[in-house]
């Protein structure tokens, strides 16, 4: 695209061009620049969303081959489905379990390895490793780690004299095992953003706080955390998106079980669409989760930009 646009307007010519042509070019330029992205997004994002929205209003009863308009029927069916309401509840627990924990750990990690020493370089690498493992592999590794009786966890817990649990097979424990994996996998990744955010903090403010007699906790609580608010808003958006769009570990490890205890909304969608042939219900659930995420992101990003303005 760059070369095409440049060829149309070599810079000498653009200077000599009359004002009106210049203005037209100015008006067109943003769209030219956005065109490649918009075209691709149209093909692979907006088109599917449109299709999902259309499907959410229709029903294709399995084994009939017919398509019927059902209005909001899929949505009412969705809320009447106990498996869906349970998956929403599971997702809330999952969000509450993963988001604050991984973000708090990320901030602590960032503070701890902030200075560029050799030790910290190794630490950063170790903390970031988990986000580099393919989920297909990570989930299989954790399958072994959580193996009841003979897995890594139970093996070492037994040495400490602690009786292990059936980490993935007990409905009271399984969701928390998945939460543990998610925190392990994401904390290092979010740390990167906090490391970035920390470098933007004005050194004078921190020094002033130290001189004013703030201890480490007070510095963190009253100076660092408020100043990092824009970063936090950004990481929060990423983390919440991850909560609703990452499902590979559920697919590989528990398939939503035992007894639906690890069924997250996205797994519910996956199951309805690909196992139960219930495309309408799957589409309705997807559209709800997309709208929820979009509302949330717009809100947080607005907050973040306001925060960024206030901070600068």
């Amino acid at each position: 695209m760059t070369s095409v646009a440049a060829a149309q307007a070599p810079f000498d010519a653009s200077h000599a061009r009359p004002v009106s042509g210049h203005r037209l070019q100015r008006r067109l330029l943003p769209w030219l620049l956005l065109a490649p992205s918009l075209l691709l997004l149209a093909a692979f994002t907006y088109l599917p969303i449109g299709r999902v929205a259309w499907e959410s209003l229709h029903d294709k009863p399995h084994a009939t081959g017919k398509t019927l308009f059902v209005g909001l029927g899929n949505y009412t069916a969705l809320f009447a489905d106990k498996a869906f309401t349970q998956s929403v509840a599971n997702n809330l627990i999952y969000a509450a379990g993963t988001v604050p924990a991984s973000m708090a750990l990320a901030l602590l990690f960032a503070l701890a390895v902030q200075r560029a020493t050799r030790f910290n370089a190794i630490m950063r690498a170790i903390l970031l490793f988990p986000s580099m493992v393919p989920l297909v592999a990570a989930a299989s590794l954790f399958f072994f780690i959580f193996l009841p009786g003979v897995g890594l966890f139970d093996h070492y817990l037994a040495k400490l004299g602690v009786r292990g649990a059936n980490w993935l097979g007990d409905p009271d424990v399984a969701l928390w095992s998945l939460i543990g994996i998610t925190v392990w996998k994401n904390a290092g990744y979010y740390m990167l953003f906090y490391l970035a955010g920390l470098t933007t903090l004005p050194g004078e403010v921190l020094e002033a706080a130290t001189i004013d007699g703030c201890n480490a906790w007070q510095r963190l609580r009253y100076v660092i955390v408020p100043l990092l608010a824009p970063t936090t808003a950004f990481v929060l958006v990423i983390a919440l998106i991850n909560v609703l769009t990452q499902v590979d570990h559920v697919i590989v490890l528990t398939k939503g079980g035992p007894s639906n205890s690890t069924k997250l909304v996205l797994y519910y969608i996956y199951e309805q669409a690909h196992e139960n042939f219930a495309y309408g219900k799957a589409a309705a659930a997807s559209l709800l989760s997309v709208s929820f995420l979009l509302a949330l992101s717009v809100f947080s990003l607005k907050t973040m930009e306001r925060g960024a303005h206030a901070a600068s």
Binding site: F44, T45, P48, I241, T245, L266, A273, V290
Partner: peptide, 18 residues
């Protein structure tokens, strides 16, 4: 914000149309 929609889409739903 229309751009950002891409972040919210759940991959399994996109498989068939894409």
């Amino acid at each position: 914000y229309v751009f950002l929609l891409q972040l919210m889409l759940v991959p399994p739903i996109l498989i068939v149309p894409n």
